[in-house]
Computed example of a mutant assay.
Amino acid sequence: MYILVINAGSSSLKYQLFDMPSDKPLCSGLIERIGTDEAFIRHKILTSVPAQTIERKATIADHTAGLQQMVYLLSDAQIGIIHSADEIQAVGHRVVHGGERFAGATLITPAVKEAIKALFPLAPLHNPVNYKCIEIAEKTFPNARQIAIFDTAFHQTMPAYAFRYAIPEELYAEDGIRVYGFHGTSHKYVSEKASAWLGKPDAKLISLHLGNGCSITAVQAGKSIDTSMGFSPLAGLVMGTRSGDIDPAIIFHLVSNGYSPDEVNDLLNKQSGMQGLTGLNDMRDIRKALEAGNRAAALALDIYAYRIRKYIGAYAAVLNGLDALLFTAGVGENDSAMREQVCSSLDVLNIHLDSSKNSTSSSEIRDVSRAGAAVKILVIPTNEELEIAIQSFELLFPS
């Protein structure tokens, strides 16, 4: 069956079309900078040999226009995969926040849509966009079943002592203030790949999703038992523009010195992290600055790696052992120097990286740990769209 996966960000739209149960996409696409005059579309037809890529700039006012472009490319007379929208039998949607209610793939009903809407305040940049894409897809593909895959769902297995904050009970019971965690779809995908690669279903794993947003998750026997992002995606590791963990008293200090709450929110989410430390948020640009002798870049990279090492130590203790350390997402998969920096000085955990293995690249899982090392260091390309397609198919056809 044809399953279309829609992964919408605040100003972007990724999609893949699968003929399930095959895990090979028929086509994929990315639309960036939605809402600007410099929007960019990259559409790949993967059924042709070699794969055909269409790239062009366009003015795409909103996600509605973006989805219209997607449908046009999918059904184009010359390059299209489908002849009409009726051929799409299911649409899997990435939804960032599912609160405590959703712990797995969910068939979208009016009640589910209302629940997603009720969570807008907890994910104001993403859930409204995810909701809008659901509504557009319902109209565009009226015969398809719409399915939500929540980023928070994988972390619903965390024990209460890991997800509760030490604040008055009513703030949890009435306002839902707790650790939710994010990047769950990615952490689930790579941890399952790692367990299969190791041949160990009960593996103790630490999964590092390092991109512009970063999070680390402790996984045992396929379940999330702790994660670095919290009530929002702001907590935890140092990120591209987010501060990560910070003393909450700093917020009060800033407000008492003239910052408005909105300004503090903007500061910590959009002007901090690597951006705040270096004026740059792309790791590739920071690497270039380091090569040019930029001392701020050197310090920022030290801070970034140090924060990760602290969490690795904490989660190794939580797991009471470790079988493998997993690197994934843009930085995790592609920045060999950061992997080496993170893995340095972790001898006490039996984590030893092989520099020659680490310098190679591949689209497959690869082991970059030293021969004979007790803890494997695995680089695993993530594929959130495939994971969404798999969960959608399994929901419709449970084994």
Score class of each variant (00 low, 15 high):
residue 27 C to Q: 05
residue 90 A to Q: 00
residue 256 S to T: 14
residue 338 M to D: 06
residue 69 Q to T: 14
residue 197 W to Q: 07
residue 319 L to I: 07
residue 301 L to V: 09
residue 237 L to T: 10
residue 189 Y to M: 07
residue 79 I to E: 05
residue 134 I to W: 11
residue 232 S to W: 06
residue 104 G to D: 15
residue 76 D to I: 06
residue 98 G to P: 12
residue 52 Q to S: 11
residue 76 D to P: 11
residue 197 W to I: 01
residue 46 L to A: 03
residue 8 A to R: 04
residue 19 D to N: 14
residue 246 I to F: 08
residue 279 G to K: 11
residue 56 R to F: 14
residue 151 D to L: 06
residue 127 N to D: 12
residue 230 G to F: 07
residue 151 D to N: 10
residue 386 L to W: 15
residue 210 L to T: 10
residue 392 S to G: 05
residue 301 L to D: 02
residue 127 N to P: 10
residue 30 L to W: 09
residue 225 I to M: 08
residue 307 R to T: 13
residue 200 K to N: 09
residue 354 D to V: 05
residue 287 R to W: 10
residue 206 I to F: 04
residue 143 N to A: 06
residue 377 I to N: 10
residue 124 P to K: 10
residue 18 F to H: 00
residue 40 F to S: 08
residue 78 Q to C: 06
residue 229 M to D: 08
residue 97 H to C: 03
residue 93 H to K: 12
residue 237 L to E: 07
residue 94 R to I: 10
residue 17 L to G: 04
residue 322 L to F: 13
residue 18 F to Y: 15
residue 57 K to I: 00
residue 291 E to F: 00
residue 388 I to A: 03
residue 260 S to H: 05
residue 223 K to R: 15
residue 320 N to M: 01
residue 322 L to S: 03
residue 53 T to Q: 07
residue 92 G to E: 13
residue 76 D to E: 13
residue 326 L to I: 15
residue 43 H to I: 13
residue 336 S to R: 11
residue 51 A to S: 14
residue 384 E to Q: 09
residue 316 A to Y: 08
residue 139 K to Q: 15
